[in-house]
Nucleic acid binder design. Structure first.
Lengths: 189, 189, 189, 189
DNA sequence: CGCTAACCGAGACGGTACGTCCCGTCTTTAC
DNA sequence: GTAAAGACGGGACGTACCGTCTCGGTTAGCG
């Protein structure tokens, strides 16, 4: 059983893709195994052969979305530029990507299911840490105010994107990422 | 129909209270009319006589939670003090109040149901406006940096509270509200 | 709740009728609640509201078949005539009636389910007792051989009908009921 | 395929044995290919390689049970003795043998499946013919009443055994085989 | 202070989705 | 190269809610 049966590989792939679609379309609450079966063309019984229940499927579908933003040439960027880039990517992801439609579902789901919560918090921590690192570097380099709490600043930056996405009709326009950074971290002198 | 039948009044009251409990306990997804009926001791049919469907009940349950933080003596406070107070209240609400358990549900629910979304965004806007006003006042008074965008700053402050509540295991400790304000708005000179 | 809700009465009636059909068509093994739902036009969920499970429905469907052959003027008949009449009716029932198609199902079902078994044996006993009584009367009256064991003779008579129905392609022709009686009880002198 | 692969022979043997067990334990309705696979230790797919479907396996399992009662020295016995012996064997088989548990299943199964029905009726006919022959001989020899219909008498004798097995809680005690024969055929003078 | 209108409880009903179990077909892997 | 493993589509099971509906019984408050 070392090598994976190609049928299994194929089934897992198409079902997960369909699950992501379903999640974005119907949300955590409206997510339906029947819907995934229909979308994917895979029989319900087959889905249940691979995932013990709906929750397991949802959790794994979320993991599919977990595509870390690349950090190419992170070292080459000035901290502030790096921060703007990260926030820009975040705003982008929260506006356009399939992830965007799933964020509310993920937040609610994490509230109910411990496993999903673990995944969700872990993923957020990983994403956040890049931002925290960049802010800390900026402070160290004297490029940012030294009264900043890097953790809180990161939470404020990412939180603003989250807030505008989930609490207002208009998510943050990626073009305004710089304005946000300026507001929170101060205009560079 | 001017005066309300006391039976109706009583039914609406106990059902809504039960609905809030149910929401906090089971979340948006696990919310069950049967559950509310059981909790409240009111028959399911009676509930459906007063609310057209589950969503309407949920929406109205949320409105019950909508207790605007009082603004007594708002004028008496210095803007910065006022901001700290508002954020402190927000952090409090997001940690302890029954509202806290419902926020994730509300976020996901708003994503699916237009009516709930309207309510949710409207409510957030009302809450946010107090913060924006205070920040604008602070800028005007020269108490805050003049390169601040009041709207973005408010989103960053409230967003940090939201972010820590929904994306990390630990919501913001109200005692750290001041540290957050200092980080986002700058330490007062 | 003394009087029965007419909807309930109606549902029970049409579902049981459909269940009898299904039983005759598909047998004990092939019996399907879905099939009954389709036949009856009653929703599956409604069926399950009235019967806890498939078995309960099957059992009650069998009871519907339990229409005791009338014993009008039983006293007026000579014992032998009475016996021939009973066997004739039995042969008739085993050839034509809806019961006929269900007998094999009943026999197999009784083997698996204790409740069904109780019903089945009790019903058989009631049916048999009329025959036993008639035979005993015949012996007493000197109309039948006195070396007959009434119980065994009844089992042989009813058993022949059962045997021909279940173990051969051709059930007993009711016209041959008399021949059967003559063979088992002896030709009247 | 002239000579049988010993592995095939072995597989057929153990699977059939397991099938008989399964049949007796679960009945026609509860019979499960999975169950046979588990009981026998042979993989489901292997079973399906040797039998086209569940029914074929069941049918052949029944044939395993088809061990005709030996007729050694049949010629040596007086007809009546021969009849008593046959009925005694039958009563025995219907009380103790693995066959007994399968009879109801066989009866119901034969009702639904033509192939099984053919087998079932054919087998019954073979078994019955020995009885019919013995009765006919007895009539010929003047040992039995000459108003007997041999076929009906055989059906009555075998039917009584069947009836008591399937329609009453107590199958016929083999010790009472003689009493049954006496009742149906008359006490020998 | 009695009548009428409404509210209330109980719960039947048709649906939809869940997660389980088994069937019979089929591919894939391993011996 | 054949047997074992087991994936797959399919379909029934029994459970849990949903939202609609009908039915009597009670209770408020108007006349």
């Amino acid at each position: 059983m070392r090598t994976l049966d190609p049928r299994v590989e194929r089934t897992r792939r198409v079902v997960l893709a369909a699950a992501v679609d379903e999640l974005a379309a119907a949300g955590y609450g409206g997510f339906t195994v029947d819907g995934v079966a229909t979308r994917s063309g895979v029989a319900r019984s087959t889905i249940y052969r691979h995932w013990p229940d709906k929750l397991a499927l949802i959790s794994e579908a979320f993991e599919v979305l977990n595509v870390q933003p690349p950090e190419p040439g992170a070292a080459d960027m000035a901290p502030r530029q790096r921060i703007e880039s990260l926030i820009g990517h975040l705003a982008e992801a929260f506006r356009d990507s399939p992830l965007s439609g799933c964020v509310p579902a993920l937040i609610d789901g994490a509230e109910r299911d411990p496993g999903l919560r673990r995944f969700h918090h872990g993923y957020s921590a990983r994403r956040r840490s890049a931002l925290v690192r960049a802010i800390a570097l900026g402070i160290e380099a004297g490029e940012l105010r030294d009264d900043l709490d890097a953790e809180l600043a990161a939470a404020a930056l990412a939180g603003a994107v989250l807030y505008l996405r989930t609490m207002t009709p208009e998510p943050l326009d990626p073009a305004r990422a710089r304005a946000l950074v300026d507001t929170v971290l101060g205009t560079p002198t």
